[in-house]
Simulated scan of single mutants.
Amino acid sequence: MEIIRTDTRASRPADPAWFTGPVWQEPVIGEGAETDIRALRVTFAPGARTAWHTHPRGQTLHVLSGVGRIATRGGAVAVIREGDTVWIPPGEEHWHGAAPDRMMCHLAIQESVDGRAADWLEHVSDADYGG
């Protein structure tokens, strides 16, 4: 057993190549662990969001606080709130982020395949974000 103390893992800004707006990530599972499971606590400032992306084995999001938005390619924008859980199937193009006027924090859980947990695409346009 290993207990990983919170003060040993710093928050870090998310890569702007894959996110729009201020986003912070905190690793939960995966960095240095002997597992294919990856989990991150991700906090989005109001209006911040991911780029379009997919996951080779799908992704589960669990909203820890705030209000967010999520959409699949060609689908309607949905509102997600604290306590909501979302399953995104493997290969489904999607994005997620905070509502325009609220922060949102979620736990993102996905499995990696050959060390790859996500395939990143283009940034989400303001029109796509607005729904």
Score class of each variant (00 low, 15 high):
P90N: 03
D84N: 05
H94G: 04
D84R: 07
S112Y: 13
M103D: 15
R81A: 08
E92P: 13
Q110D: 13
G115M: 10
E93K: 14
D114P: 05
D101M: 07
D119Q: 15
L121C: 06
R102W: 15
R116W: 11
E82M: 03
G83R: 00
A108Y: 01
P90G: 06
L121Y: 10
D119S: 09
I88W: 07
E93M: 11
H94Y: 07
I109F: 11
H94S: 04
T85I: 13
V79C: 10
C105H: 08
W95D: 01
P100E: 05
L121T: 02
P100D: 08
M103V: 12
M104S: 01
R81W: 06
E93S: 11
D84S: 06
D114H: 03
D101K: 01
D114S: 06
R102M: 14
R81L: 12
E82N: 04
A117Q: 15
E93L: 10
H106P: 00
W120L: 08
A118R: 11
W120D: 05
D84H: 04
P100Q: 08
R102G: 07
G115E: 09
G83Y: 04
A118S: 10
P90C: 03
L107T: 09
W87Y: 13
R116D: 15
C105T: 09
A98S: 05
D84M: 06
G91M: 04
R81T: 14
H96D: 01
A98K: 01
T85W: 06
H96I: 00
R102D: 15
A117D: 13
D114L: 09
L121E: 10
